[in-house]
């Protein structure tokens, strides 16, 4: 589902964020992406979302080579990739419902279908009774769950999460991880950037570790192991 072939990303200021990264994530797989800040996790995610283009190499998502996508096709690609952001990226000028409904409105889903799907997504993250409130009144954990509902409401085949538990306490973090696991179990390919080792180990999932822009580890972590 996600393939990188010898991908490098060099920014205009000369900084090389990724160097010759090759990896493959299969459909319906759940993978963690770790590494210190600045190791290239965010850049890798931006390449998948087409916020950035690789300087070299190929990124293929769901069989589509992103290098061949024209800029006019980028929005349609992004609808296939749900993203959960560390800073939530919620809009505080509208209700929780309207935040979650945004991807459906953009994709052109029928109005009567929007309500049903938004409520299903909010129900999934346990916020069904908060649909009318403004997200600014919610706690950090709740805001994160609204962000997750928005990322999955359009049923994308790929789900990315950038430090989704960054600011949450351990209990909330494991709740959130459980949500991702549930999406993964219904066939969504999930890629989570995180450096919460204990949480990652507890999930027992495959781990990709980046260090200075290079892939240095790929596999399941054994007990007590800390990559890099």
């Amino acid at each position: 589902m996600i393939e990188f072939h010898n991908v490098s990303k060099r920014y205009p200021n000369g900084y090389e964020a990724l160097t010759g990264v090759t990896l493959q994530v299969d459909e319906a797989e759940m993978v963690f992406l770790t590494g210190h800040s600045g190791a290239g996790k965010s850049t890798l995610m931006k390449l998948i979302m087409l916020i950035e283009r690789p300087s070299q190499g190929q990124v293929v998502i769901g069989g589509r080579n992103l290098n061949r996508l024209r800029s006019g096709q980028i929005p349609f690609h992004r609808r296939q990739v749900g993203v959960v952001f560390q800073n939530h990226q919620l809009l505080f000028d509208r209700s929780v419902f309207d935040n979650v409904a945004l991807p459906l409105q953009i994709a052109g889903v029928h109005q009567r279908e929007v309500g049903r799907r938004v409520r299903a997504a909010l129900d999934k993250v346990g916020l069904l009774e908060r649909e009318r409130v403004n997200p600014i009144t919610l706690s950090g954990g709740e805001q994160q769950r609204v962000g997750i509902a928005r990322a999955v409401v359009n049923k994308p085949p790929v789900l990315l999460a950038d430090e989704p538990t960054g600011n949450l306490d351990p209990n909330l973090s494991s709740d959130i991880m459980q949500l991702f696991r549930e999406f993964n179990q219904v066939g969504v390919t999930v890629l989570i950037a995180s450096h919460d080792w204990s949480l990652i180990r507890s999930m027992g999932a495959r781990v990709l570790t980046l260090e200075q822009g290079q892939l240095v580890h790929d596999g399941v972590l054994v007990q007590g192991e800390v990559p890099a």
């Binding site: 979302m49 916020i51 006019g72 929005p75 349609f76 690609h77 992004r78 609808r79 993203v83 952001f85 990226q89 919620l90 809009l91 000028d93 945004l102 991807p103 953009i106 994709a107 928005r150 359009n154």
Partner: peptide, 15 residues
């Protein structure tokens, strides 16, 4: 902010 979010979740330029 709103424009950035719309673009992130796949809004076209027309939208």
């Amino acid at each position: 902010e709103e424009i950035v979010v719309i673009k992130l979740v796949g809004g076209t330029d027309g939208f």
